[in-house]
Design a protein around this nucleic acid. Structure first.
Length: 568
RNA sequence: UGGGGGAUCGUCUAGUGGUAGGACAGCGGACUCUGACUCCGCUAGCGGGGGUUCGAAUCCCUCUCCCCCAGCCA
């Protein structure tokens, strides 16, 4: 097979293309992204957002941004604003097509009257418990409510009284009259309206009856002229109800609902309820905590919108349950940042090195490439003097076999500078290594073509005198288990206690002092980092690690530990 | 035990009666002043059993396993 071929379209695009070809809806394509403003958007929503907006665009149609705000109890303007910000950030523009289910409350109400008048809806005065009992079970059919055969006039009168606020919450509901014996529970006279005496964030106190999801969502789609209504699998058996509304009401358009599977990410949870719990109970510092799978959290972590869209494109659309490896996501941001991020030196866990044969007051500035594979990005100067910092992990007194770093008597290259050799290890009384004494070979300066001998390895470093100290935050997966919400135990038991490591005395090269918010860097041999604008101020910069570099050495170490146990 | 869905390399995903392909991961190698990047190579899959057919992931039968549904949430 030809590898140049474009990847196959997903099943939804096949369906839409076929509909267009057959001239349904006059070839028009219109979609909508319908979030409920009861929480922040997460990476799972990105799949729906991309699907809704991309398909509309691909077929020359339009996509509405519509808030499904039919439950004032849970919804809040804070979420409405955050959601819009996140969708825009992802790169989508709904133009003037911003809508709310609440914009349609009057029309929805008219549809309800219509159903009552045609004998297809009735006011039920049973309690919630009684309704549940009469609904039956998965295997037993339900029973009709004693109020099911009220006259049209009585239903009209009661519904009007509900609307006028003459009843308390829970006294009555409006139900569709469909089939209490249906094997599909959604068709056993579903509730259409309930009484809620709560101020709505948009309509205020105008209404005290609010439509239920199935009713409001279907008819909002129909009123807007949606042609294709995408949603996740759990709504699959709501489709017959969706279609029942379309068939039994004088709707201007008949959209088609198509379901796809949500996606799940290993080492994380993806339900708004659970994410809200992490926020409320203080396991994270907010919806935008860089460990959260929310779009705002990932943005703060350093993910770009392009990398998220790239990721969504790669995981595809199917109806199969799926759990995606974290590496697949990380790969997307690494790929982008490897290409675009300027390189810098940062010593995260410093160990002082004295270059004993370097002049006491000596100082020189060396040229270091901003990007080794992209010379057009130029160079910056890094200072060297007699005392420098290297990474503590880059020295081992008794190194394992394949260690390609510094150890006693061994030579390594200071990247973009000289070859040094470890002559002496200085320890404090407790035996902890506090300083290294090294000699350097002045003939081996980088770029001179001299001193090209093979050494053990190349390490990064920062001049002690010129270093500026910064806080660096190393974020890791929020959960220690790949499937935190599988099994009977509480998902919070799987929280990773090491998901955040705060380093307060990282030594950064001077050029980093000019770092701007949004600028991303590769700290060589470490990973990709960005300023956390929330935590930084003029006195103190705080850098956040977006993702580590791929690290085959760490992998080897990990495998060795697995093999020989973790003791010692 | 009712109804609705789903099963293709470790993980995602193509395939629509004609050599099971791609991505990520993994393994091996080359390169390397980042144990990065890049490049080369390799490993690895149609849930089981029948049937139709010259030929089946694809069509038929059957079995198994997994997910969703009993809110006045969405």
């Amino acid at each position: 097979m030809n590898t140049d071929e474009a990847p196959g379209k997903d099943f939804i695009r096949h369906i839409v293309a076929a509909d267009v070809e057959e001239g349904r809806h006059s070839g028009r394509v219109q979609t909508r992204f319908p979030p409920e403003p009861n929480g922040y958007l997460h990476i799972g929503h990105a799949k729906a957002i991309c699907l809704d907006f991309d398909i509309a665009q691909e077929f020359g149609g339009q996509c509405y941004m519509r808030f499904d705000d039919t439950n004032p109890e849970k919804e809040d303007i804070e979420y409405v604003e955050a959601i819009q910000k996140d969708v825009r950030w992802l790169g989508y523009d709904w133009g003037d097509r911003l809508a709310h289910a609440s914009d349609y409350f009057q029309e929805l109400h008219n549809f309800a009257i219509n159903l009552i008048e045609s004998g297809k809806a009735y006011v039920d005065s049973l309690s919630a418990e009684e309704i549940r009992t009469l609904r039956g079970t998965l295997t037993e059919s339900g029973k009709n409510s004693p109020y099911r055969n009220r006259s049209v006039n009585e239903n009209l009168r009661l519904f009007s009284a509900m609307e006028q606020g003459e009843f308390e919450e829970g006294e009555h509901v409006l139900r569709a009259k469909i089939d209490m014996a249906s094997p599909n529970l959604n068709l056993r006279d579903p509730t259409l309206y309930r009484i809620r005496k709560i101020t709505h964030q948009r309509t205020g106190d105008k209404w005290c009856i609010y439509p239920m999801y199935d009713f409001a969502h279907t008819l909002s789609d129909a009123l807007e002229g949606t042609t294709h209504s995408f949603c996740t699998l759990e709504f699959e058996d709501h489709r017959p109800l969706y279609e029942w509304f379309l068939e039994n009401l004088p709707v201007p358009h008949s959209p088609r609902q198509i379901e796809f599977s949500r996606f799940n990410l290993m080492f994380t949870v993806m339900s708004k309820r659970k994410l809200a719990q992490l926020v409320d109970e203080g396991h994270v510092q907010g919806w935008d905590d860089p460990r959260m799978p929310t779009l705002s959290g990932m943005r703060r972590r350093g993910y770009t919108a392009a990398s998220i869209r790239d990721f969504i494109g790669r995981i595809g659309i199917t109806k199969k349950e799926n759990v995606i490896e974290l590496g697949a996501l990380e790969n997307c941001i690494r790929e982008e940042l490897n290409d675009t991020a300027p390189r810098r030196f940062a010593v995260l866990k410093p160990l002082k090195v004295v270059i004993s044969n370097y002049p006491d007051d000596g100082e020189e500035w060396l040229e270091a490439a901003n990007h080794p594979n992209r010379p057009e990005l130029g160079f910056r100067q890094v200072p060297l003097c007699r005392e420098i910092y290297i990474e503590r992990d880059d020295f081992e007194e008794d190194p394992p076999g394949k260690f390609r770093r510094l150890s006693p008597g061994v030579e390594v290259r200071l990247r973009y500078a000289y070859i040094i050799k470890c002559e002496d290890v200085i320890k404090d009384p407790s035996g902890e290594i506090i300083e290294l004494h090294c000699s350097y070979d002045p003939s081996t300066r980088s770029g001179t073509g001299q001193g090209q001998r093979k050494v053990k390895g190349t390490i990064h470093w920062v001049s002690a005198k010129h270093a500026f100290c910064s806080e660096v935050r190393l974020y890791d997966r929020l959960f220690a288990s790949p499937y935190p919400d599988r099994g009977a135990d509480n998902f919070k038991q799987h929280l990773n206690p090491d998901s955040l490591e705060v380093l307060v005395d990282a030594a950064l090269e001077p050029a980093l002092a000019q770092a701007q918010p949004e600028e991303r860097f590769q700290f060589e041999r470490q990973g990709y980092f960005m300023i956390d604008a929330e935590l930084s101020d003029t006195n103190q910069l705080v850098f956040t690690r977006t993702v580590t570099l791929r690290n085959s050495w760490a992998k080897m170490e990990h495998q060795a530990l697995q093999k020989f146990g973790t003791a010692g």
